[in-house]
Structure formats: structure tokens, C-alpha cells
Amino acid sequence: MKINKKNLSFILLLTVFAACKPKPKPVDTVAQTRTSGTVSMLVDESFSEVLADQIEVFKTDYPDTKFTIVEGNEQKILPTFLNDSVRVIILSRMLTEAEDKMYRSRSIVPKTARFGIDGIALIANVENPDSNITVNEVVDIMKGTSVSGKQLVFDNAYSSTLRYFKDLAAIKALPAKGIYTLQTNNDVIKYIAENKGFVGVVGVNWLIDNKEEMAPYLEKVKMMGVKNVKGKKGGDEFYRPIQANLINGKYPFLRNIYIIDAEGRDGLGTGFANWLVSPRGQLIVLRSGLGPHKLASRDFNFKNTN
């Protein structure tokens, strides 16, 4: 085939442009910094939705990053963190003194930062006449001393949510009656949507920022109001776990969300932890319906136009 000089020049020009066009770097070849490189992270599945939103925006800002996420219940992921397999974890509690010492014995000081406030919602079927419950009633159910007939349904037997209520009731073992466990938060929502007479226990974020396929089930459940113990904040009336009540602390069942970084170096784990508590990261927490760690102040300048 004959190629004239004009066509040849065009082909050469395309070749030059193709050679000059920047190609994205493979993430595993970029420098390991606060805004580039790779990081593996263990995540309490209760917070998987809000964390996914954070990572999506972070990667938009810093495309040369790669996150490997391992989700699971608290009792499953914590041993992986403590045996030094993965050094960044998202939990609803801080490390105990003994757990902290395990890392310090390796000359690594874990860095802990709170980036959000989660509410644990109690939900009921929309056709259930009960719309309120007290903290004392919940504690009685957990202890097996309740005479109300109410039964609690949790995500799973090893979750941070169930651990929270066991700590609240100061019990080690669950009673023989009144407590049921499934597998996930969505399982609880489905169960309550299809069964009356039960009280489901789920993270607030699962009621606000959930997948589209859960919409038919979410329409059939309602958040219950909770009254705290008399004399404590939120003990004057029933409060629902709406965002305002998470921020002002009037809703009784609150827990912090922490990121714990034990990488032992100034890498992507540190950068992401700092970003979570930055104004941009906190705005995403606010939009998720949870309580932010810190509300950004707003300054207004007033000019005299007279």
C-alpha cells in the first residue's frame, strides 16, 4: 500500500501524541506517602457504609492510592490487627491497655483518632404499636429479667453492637430468652420488616445510607424513641437517633468511631487518618447522618453598606 507524505506526517504526529500522553502509574510503584501508595485496613462491618463514602472521595482527591479493605465483626478483625497482620483498623472502641502494650512491645506506638459518633438505633415494625422504649427496659431484656415480653434482635453474636449492650448491662453471657442474633445489619432490618413484636438493633447509618434494594424493607420499619435513666442526659423524654440528638448527646445509645493506625511510619494510613478528621472528611460524616468528631466553625463578615 502506498503512503503519501501527507498521510505519513499525520501518522507520525499521532505517534508523537501517543508517546507524550501521560499514563497512570501503577499504584504499587508509586511512593509510599500520606497521599499515595497502598494501605490495608480492617473495618468493623457496622461502619462499612460510611467508610466506603470516605474512601471514594479520598481517592478522587488522591488517585495514586489503593485501599485493601477487610470487613468483619469486631471479634473477627481485632485478632488480625493484634497479631500484626494488618496495622490499620476501624473500631467502635479504643485499644485496651493490654492491647496497646502488644504493639508498644514491638516499638510501635498506635495512634488513635475519633472521626465520628454513631447512634445505635432500636427499630420496630411500622405496625407495632410500641414506638418508645427506655434504657432500663433494654437492660432488663439483656439481663433476662424483663417482664415486658419485648425481644431484641442483633446483627450477630460477635458484633461490636452486641458487645456494647452487654457492657451496658454488665453481663458476660446472654440470657436464655429474649435475645436473638442473625448475621448482618441488613438481616435485622429485613427480619423486623417481616415480623411484628420484635425490636431490632442496628447502626443508624444502615437506616440512612443503605443500598437501593433495601428500600422496601426500610419502609416497613421505624426508629424508636429512647429515654435514658432518670438524672442522666436524655432522661427527660424519649429521643430518636436523629443527627441532632447524636451531636447534642441526648440520644442514649451512642458510640465513637475510631481509626487506629499502627503502621509505625508516616504512610497512607497516617494520611487517611488525618483526612478523616479534616473539614472535608468531617463533612462526609455529617452528610452520612452520623455525628462528626468536630463541627467546623463558620465565620461571617458583616460589612456596613451605609
Rank of each mutant, 00 (worst) to 15 (best):
V199M: 01
N186P: 00
I260Y: 10
A176W: 06
V199R: 12
L182C: 06
D236Q: 13
N210D: 01
P279G: 03
L246D: 01
Y239M: 05
T270R: 11
E212K: 11
Q282C: 05
N205V: 08
K227Q: 10
A176Q: 09
N228Q: 07
V277P: 02
F272D: 08
P252V: 02
K227W: 05
D261Q: 14
N248G: 05
Y239T: 14
V277E: 03
Y239K: 15
N185H: 09
I247D: 15
H293T: 03
A173T: 02
A173M: 10
F198V: 10
F272L: 06
K177I: 00
L182P: 02
F272K: 11
H293C: 02
D209W: 10
V202Q: 04
T184F: 07
K294L: 07
N195M: 08
S278R: 12
G269Q: 02
N245S: 08
E212N: 09
K233M: 00
K233C: 07
K222N: 13
I247S: 09
G271C: 04
K233W: 02
K294I: 03
R265F: 06
V202T: 09
E237P: 06
E213K: 13
K232T: 03
G234R: 01
Y191L: 09
L174W: 10
I242D: 15
G271W: 02
A173K: 12
P292D: 09
L268A: 09
E237Y: 10
K211S: 06
L207R: 12
K196E: 07
M223D: 15
G203V: 02
A215P: 09
G271N: 14
G200F: 01
G203F: 06
P216H: 13
N195I: 07
I259H: 14
P252K: 10
